[in-house]
Amino acid sequence: MNVFVIVAIFAIVFLVAVIDLMRRRVLMEQYSLFWLGMGLVLLILSIFHQWLNPLADVLKIAYPPSLLFLIGFLFLFGIMLHLTVVLSRLTMRSIRLVQELGMVKAELKILQTEHELTEGDRHVN
């Protein structure tokens, strides 16, 4: 049992979980691509971990598995940046919706008042 086996098991469980969430439509496809990418890269690199050695040498990393963690970290940074972009977009959209709703409600109130007035007139006549 070494660190690569643990990472490989984690990656498999993680990929299954992500795919299951997508299957049940809990996670939308456009937000799952990052996670699938990360899971696959970690899985492949933990199985073929000899690929890490030359790269670790080039980067002067004494302990090759830490390269695996670095790659995982970089993915997480990317995912979090993506999430805050999505969050900003959602915020802007919800502000726009609240504004439109407020304006529509104001318009509706005016129309209702006018309607009640004309109804009243009809009553008098």
Binding site: I95, V98, Q99, L101, G102, M103, K105, A106
Partner: peptide, 9 residues
């Protein structure tokens, strides 16, 4: 004239 926003923006 009044516009009521349903939540605080």
């Amino acid at each position: 004239q009044v516009i009521e926003l349903p939540v605080n923006l």
